[in-house]
Simulated scan of single mutants.
Amino acid sequence: MTDVTRPGRTDDPLDKAHAAAAAEVARNDGKAGAMLAASNILAAVLMGVVPNADLSGPVAVLAGLGVLLNLAAMIAVLLVIRSRFGSPAAARGSFLHWATLTPEELVEELAQDRRAAATVTLSRIARAKHRLVRAAVDLTVASSGVFALAVLVALA
């Protein structure tokens, strides 16, 4: 029987799973970066417009709600891009752990196949990031809707 988990094989399912999990983490980080840029643009526009605007009661309430929703979206994407590896001891098999080792300890550490554990950890990180990105998108959509409603009320 052939060992399909042998390191160095290009068709190794464990290598493919690890690469897919790492790619998903990177993909969520990219999405979070785009969401943060969009939220910052909206915040900048609001900072330029709101101080000079004469907002009536309902429009002010809607604008305030829109700002809060946008702020919540920004916080969600900042949590996405925040490091999730934890302490070096908890991050065995990662650069954080390797930085605490001597060269000899690193060689010994790398002799152990920790790809399965690393893949599970990366997958959990990717899932958490995915949930936060979804929340940020939902909050941004809600914020945009509230701002649109505020404009309609202001124009009425």
Results as ranks from 00 to 15, higher is better:
residue 145 G to K: 08
residue 129 K to C: 04
residue 122 L to P: 04
residue 70 N to R: 10
residue 100 T to M: 11
residue 107 V to D: 11
residue 36 L to T: 03
residue 70 N to C: 10
residue 45 V to T: 07
residue 12 D to A: 13
residue 70 N to L: 15
residue 156 A to L: 11
residue 68 L to Y: 03
residue 8 G to T: 08
residue 33 G to D: 04
residue 91 A to V: 06
residue 64 G to T: 10
residue 8 G to K: 07
residue 132 L to I: 01
residue 43 A to W: 01
residue 43 A to Q: 10
residue 79 L to M: 14
residue 59 V to S: 04
residue 67 V to F: 12
residue 47 M to L: 14
residue 154 A to C: 01
residue 134 R to W: 10
residue 120 V to D: 14
residue 121 T to R: 15
residue 26 A to R: 14
residue 32 A to Q: 04
residue 52 N to P: 00
residue 17 A to G: 01
residue 153 V to Q: 03
residue 140 T to K: 01
residue 36 L to G: 07
residue 127 R to T: 10
residue 71 L to K: 05
residue 1 M to W: 12
residue 81 I to A: 06
residue 94 S to P: 00
residue 62 L to D: 04
residue 143 S to D: 07
residue 134 R to C: 06
residue 58 P to I: 06
residue 122 L to Y: 08
residue 120 V to A: 14
residue 5 T to W: 11
residue 71 L to I: 12
residue 136 A to I: 07
residue 78 L to M: 13
residue 87 S to V: 10
residue 17 A to F: 00
residue 10 T to K: 11
residue 148 A to Y: 02
residue 29 D to H: 15
residue 35 M to Y: 08
residue 111 A to E: 15
residue 152 L to G: 06
residue 40 N to P: 00
residue 31 K to E: 13
residue 147 F to I: 06
residue 156 A to Y: 04
residue 83 S to Q: 09
residue 32 A to M: 05
residue 7 P to G: 01
residue 127 R to K: 12
residue 77 V to I: 07
residue 57 G to H: 11
residue 24 E to D: 13
residue 66 G to W: 00
residue 143 S to R: 07
residue 109 E to W: 04
residue 136 A to H: 04
residue 100 T to D: 08
residue 8 G to F: 06
residue 125 I to D: 13
residue 101 L to G: 03
residue 106 L to H: 07
residue 129 K to F: 04
residue 16 K to V: 12
residue 9 R to K: 12
residue 117 A to K: 06
residue 112 Q to M: 10
residue 74 M to D: 06
residue 82 R to K: 15
residue 146 V to G: 01
residue 125 I to Y: 11
residue 22 A to P: 01
residue 1 M to L: 12
residue 5 T to I: 07
